[in-house]
């Protein structure tokens, strides 16, 4: 249960990059994740980044900061970012922050933009 370590798997097809994140996203794990993801994005320069959250068991507001920061970078690179399969608890904090206004969240009906 005490797992603030993170792990990820990635899949690349042309300029689509799918990154599946594992574990818990909090302030403790965010710094490492941020550096890891930014390195990946700058290297691969995808036009579409899919962050698969299906294996994220916990996320607090540090995760919101992490996601918004990566969205900013993706926009600078001229690409889009999509969130995939957050569990209902993770979805709850995403929608509390209105994240569906800034990025596509799959499985969330009525997402604007």
């Amino acid at each position: 249960m005490i797992r603030t370590e993170y792990r990820y798997e990635m899949q690349k097809k042309d300029r689509l990059l799918v990154v599946r994140l594992f574990g818990e996203i909090d302030h403790h794990s965010a710094a490492g994740l941020r550096a890891e993801l930014d390195g990946l994005l700058l290297k691969e320069r995808p036009v579409r980044l899919v962050l698969d959250l299906s294996h994220i068991e916990f996320m607090d507001s540090a995760g919101l900061g992490l996601l918004l920061g990566r969205l900013r970078l993706m926009r600078e690179l001229g690409g889009v970012m999509v969130l995939k399969s957050p569990n209902p608890r993770v979805l709850k904090i995403l929608t509390l922050a209105g994240m569906e206004r800034f990025m596509e969240i799959d499985g969330l009906k009525g997402a604007e933009k």
Binding site: L64, L68, L96
Partner: peptide, 14 residues
């Protein structure tokens, strides 16, 4: 310095 979202208290409240 960090990427703070400023949503901590909002989360606690909600």
């Amino acid at each position: 310095t960090d990427e703070r979202s400023g949503m901590g208290f909002t989360v606690m409240e909600n």
